[in-house]
Nucleic acid binder design. Structure first.
Lengths: 342, 342
DNA sequence: CAATTCGCGACATGAATTGTCGTCGGTATA
DNA sequence: TATACCGACGACAATTCATGTCGCGAATTG
């Protein structure tokens, strides 16, 4: 039994492909956990494990051991029904919303769930896709593909505070350009993942870069410098991502009754109230942040909502509505100027 | 080494709290995997494991063994930087979009990631929240709370094809009502999770129920009946969820240039094209499904877009725009009829 | 080139694992 | 209710298997 425990410790300590662990390190780790063991034993255990698990040592001296490729993480206990279902649900949910390469990292977890369900006796497996689904709540857009090696390099550099050499293809330019940057943070928003980084030349200029536009990323050895006082939350709130936090406002909006139905289940804020207004409409009141999403969200309802307060917002909507109806003045576009540039 | 493998097999086979496994079953499982082992050995191993892992047997005869609670029971190899980061990202991403009780099931995975990062030498841990964030792409709504036990009972019934007794609080009624239902599927959409089920009385009437509106759920022993030919995908496409798939259409829309910027990164469809139209605008063409989300999404841009084709959609937008500007006619709402019902 | 360090085969010791058997207490069956 | 049955568990002996030690050769480091 003692050996089993020790082996488990070892299995946990062995890293994946980019990393490696030497016998000496492992020995240290074990003795730190109270295993007084001979070096030879560790060696034997490692070679033993490598015959059974996808574990190899590079042929250097001292040897470094690591998991090769995809670790079938089959070492953990059975998931229960809820967990398996949840994982499936989340997987479907994320598939439309996250770059594939990001999800690939989670693949082992998901496949575990899959196997779990597959193992359940009867024909549960076949019925599977018929039992669970995820419907996108907003217009599904195609998510870009992020290169796996880019993702890896950036993640590592970010965690280890190292500089990065990037080949970045900006939208404006035709050719990718090389840049040395100090990575600061990674932010995901609706299928896109942004790398926030400072240029090595001028540390003050913090820029956003889209992960999928990075052609090549190489982690450098030079440590990265974080501008003093850089605060990610504030950075986002300040609207650098185009979606600032804005200040709180008290919103009063008229909704068609059926349109407001879902607000009973997913309220806008904790203090949201919904009152009868007239035959067809209800008045929704809530305190929330004045963001661009809010405008976007409210606009989405078209003529089914009417903003009452704050007045500034009402004015904004009135303007938009006016311009919109203007846009559609010739409802049937009489002339079709599909020419290039006016 | 042989024993280690065997124990690993055993650890995997032990289920969690609601489930259990007997020595006999375990023995069978092992011998099915090529371990010719004495029953006594299995017994000894189990008691051995129970001293080291959160494993107990209920005191019945034959004894059933199971994992107690959700202790850190995940024994798998070290996550690499990318995986750890990804998990964190996904966690943040999901927090705003999924009911907490659903996410709780994933907690072990996430905490593993957390520990992984915490274990990295220096002060990586403290810098953590400063390095990763997820910005909601649309208006964040408060997601309802689903009871854990309800979630469990429903999941199990769904997987095992059993009937369910529900205490369901519909929006219309003040008192929750008891129902016996045959669960068919679970569908998540934007923070809400729906249970699709047929009433036991009339199997043809398939209804949607919101998971968080279920007060009590009890899995019954009686097997559930799936209406013949029930097809979840078709069910959704047919619009029962309010978001039907609709048929394909060729969309032509004018966008303000800066508004269309993100379409370069997250296109609407694989065949999307973006052409210069005039000084300020581009013409976006794409083939996609005519869904309500599409309308919603396009409306969200307000006067920044103009639908050109199909004409029916243009007409629809023209109408909406007209009514909207009508709504805001008295831009400053002169009289404020905050009375109850007209 | 010398001094370590590392990997690994060999081997003896002993600890730990395993199968068998028998008893006891509870459970199912007639 | 009696009887047969089954599962759990202690005891014990056999032996496998795991462990520490030693030493050699190769590789690495200074």
């Amino acid at each position: 039994m003692d050996k089993v425990l020790r082996i488990l410790h070892m299995l946990q300590k062995i890293p994946q492909a980019p990393g490696k662990i030497t016998i000496a390190q492992m020995l240290e780790h074990l003795s730190a956990n109270g295993y007084n063991i001979a070096r030879r034993t560790v060696e034997r255990d490692m070679t033993g494990l490598s015959t059974v698990f996808p574990i190899t040592d590079d042929e250097t001296r001292p040897a470094g051991w690591y998991y090769t490729g995809d670790v079938g993480r089959w070492i953990f206990p059975a998931l229960n029904a809820t967990e398996a279902l949840t994982l499936k649900l989340v997987q479907q949910y994320l598939t439309d919303l996250m770059p594939a390469s990001v999800l690939n990292n989670l693949a082992p977890f998901f496949s575990q769930a899959h196997q779990e369900i597959a193992a359940m006796d009867d024909n549960t497996l076949q019925q599977w896709p018929n039992k669970i689904a995820s419907v996108p709540a907003s217009q599904p857009l195609l998510v870009p593909i992020i290169k796996t090696d880019v993702q890896m390099a950036v993640s590592q550099a970010l965690l280890e505070n190292k500089q990065l050499r990037l080949l970045y293809q900006s939208r404006e330019q035709t050719e990718p350009a090389e840049r040395i940057v100090h990575p600061l943070a990674m932010v995901s928003r609706g299928g896109l993942i942004y790398l926030i980084a400072a240029a090595s030349a001028e540390l003050d200029s913090i820029r956003l870069r889209l992960m999928h536009r990075i052609h090549v990323a190489e982690k450098l050895e030079a440590p990265s410098i974080r501008p003093e006082g850089f605060d990610l939350a504030r950075f986002i709130d300040d609207g650098f991502l185009g979606f600032g936090q804005g200040r709180q406002l008290v919103l009063k909006v008229l909704f068609l009754k059926e349109t407001a139905a879902h607000l009973y289940d997913t309220p806008l804020s904790t203090n949201q109230t919904i009152e009868e207004y007239d035959q067809n409409r209800v008045l929704v009141t809530a305190t929330l942040a004045d963001t661009q999403q809010l405008t976007w969200w409210l606009l989405g309802f078209g003529d089914k909502v009417e903003v009452i307060e704050p007045l500034a917002l009402r004015q904004k909507f009135a303007d938009i509505a006016a311009r919109m109806s203007q846009n559609y003045q010739p409802v049937i576009p009489t002339d079709k100027p599909v020419s290039q540039t006016s």
